[in-house]
Design a protein around this nucleic acid. Sequence first.
DNA 1: ATAACTTATTAAATCTGTTAAATAAGTTTT
DNA 2: AAAACTTATTTAACAGATTTAATAAGTTAT
Lengths: 345, 345
Amino acid sequence: MDEKLANPKSVKKMILRGIRRNLIEFGSTTKVELSHKLQVSFPTISKFLTQMEKNGEIFSIGLDESSGGRRAKRFMYNPEYMLGLAIFLERSETNYTIFNCLGEIKHQGKLPSVLRDGGLPELTTYISKIINANPKISSMAIGVPGAVENGRIFHIPGYDQFQNIDLKGYYEEHFSIPVAVENDMNAAILGYYKNRNLKDQSLVYLYSGKNGPGAGIMLNGNVVRGSTFFSGEVQFVPQYNDRNFQQALNREHGPGKEMISEEYEVDAISRLVASFVAIINPHGFIFCKDEVDETIIEKIKAVSQKYVPVEHLPEFEASDWEQDYLFGLQTLCLDVMIDEISNIS
Amino acid sequence: MDEKLANPKSVKKMILRGIRRNLIEFGSTTKVELSHKLQVSFPTISKFLTQMEKNGEIFSIGLDESSGGRRAKRFMYNPEYMLGLAIFLERSETNYTIFNCLGEIKHQGKLPSVLRDGGLPELTTYISKIINANPKISSMAIGVPGAVENGRIFHIPGYDQFQNIDLKGYYEEHFSIPVAVENDMNAAILGYYKNRNLKDQSLVYLYSGKNGPGAGIMLNGNVVRGSTFFSGEVQFVPQYNDRNFQQALNREHGPGKEMISEEYEVDAISRLVASFVAIINPHGFIFCKDEVDETIIEKIKAVSQKYVPVEHLPEFEASDWEQDYLFGLQTLCLDVMIDEISNIS
DNA sequence: ATAACTTATTAAATCTGTTAAATAAGTTTT
DNA sequence: AAAACTTATTTAACAGATTTAATAAGTTAT
């Protein structure tokens, strides 16, 4: 119904958001820098920073070297002003970290899995304890192995207790802090993207997993979800006369066998790469560190060229999935934190 | 370098753009309607409209029926205030239309192809004549069968004269009006999308063509271009043990044979559909009217289900490619027109 | 060491959109 | 038909960000 909001009232919020985002992303800044980056006049920036310094949200860390004139005062975000909580629910355990806005991890812990047994009530208990012990926590991001739409768990096969739960709404109400909920692969690809400071890139994050392969897809910096939240279910891609990707990979070995090694696996993955190149032509293609090594990547690169012109192949990389996942959640957590406080003050 | 622009100076531009876009999109409005839709206060809207009416850009078309109080004045955009020119260059001919901001076509014509013979100079001559004869033309969109980046023709196989030409820059300089340049499939998918007033949808537009198949892809309302402008080159998708999509389609018959009919063609397309579903899970999948009919679509729908769960299949539709193409160019033309004039006044 | 130049910051004036109150133009109720 | 109510528009006071001018704090050249 409403068009794109040319909302001039919210200029203040936008500016605050911009200042915080910049300060947090780059660690420290001066007023002139901010003024240029945000395209906002110096006096305005100055007024905001003065107020924020009074609130204890930022503080000065001294003067820059002179560049020919008066030395500029450098400001830094107070990393203890507020903390974030990232939780990811997995089949066998629940991990969480508490971190400040610089991404420094203040605390890290493991809890029993709640997906199958304790369910929502147990999760709530755990979070309550964590938040009570760390009252500075002012936002939270939760990662789940399921499809999420706008904070509601849409589809989470195997864990019926969480099916159709509006985690975001429930916890925002319950704890009165902003909450983000995201699918694991989407969080991982976001984390990879943010961690490397990429801009407007298209990426594919593939994991072959034991429960069937899946992919996280990012296009021009936006996570792709699909019309029925089915995007990334690459197991269904038809690849051979009578086998799709999952059947071609055929990963039903005993536990422990994670690394890709066989000829037929490499061909299947290379065909998948080719499909991605021909369809969305991404900048990067990311594997999980524990599923491929340098040699395998080289092989995949070589075989892919049989299917698509080499100049269109993406960059290949093996990355640490858990770390990316965590970083993605932290990013989401900081986002809602920044948005929220900018709405208030 | 610069962050997202929280630019408070350009509020005026935003408002003007919003007013124009709304007025053009919906035909007519009242001040209250605009105020609500754009989230801008009534007095501000009022001031702008008064000025625009003075300029002859809009005019009143009388009063609304009363809804219990004073009757509201209804305004309409002056459709003759400015005209747009859409041109598409094809192998065998050059088509153009002149239209007003309501999309009404004022003039339509055909010219000889310039892609192979006359090249840029001849195209310039043609456009000059058209613009001289219609001085109200204040923006232009050009469609080309090649990859375009930011107005520059990046890759246009077979038409060397246009390789690496910055059409947008050249003509904006030459004619002093804003210019948009876009790839044919991208324009077509944009046209389809806008014509049906869709929002944030993901779509695939497939044409099987004689020069190899290709696809236009839109994700959440944004055209997908790819890291090396290779996206949509679906001919390379591996589909069978030893054939990719192009080889499977095998469309090297004599001229005139456009309609899809054979069993093997249906299977290849269904596999492609399945790949798209598993990768980006689009809302809609569009074919060209002259390549499929209802029966074929039903067949494709049936066969696709062999490869992916039926509930995730997109809507299928056959559409008029030329019409979509034209409408896409008109949309682009109006966009740059609105942007440009909002920057000036 | 003083003049000339750079750069950062502050102060004052201006511009632009918002809010709130007043007015205009209708409809419905009594 | 007058009073009470609705809705649209105008007017005046206000708020917030910008621009411009003034000031502060350094550096470099002579």
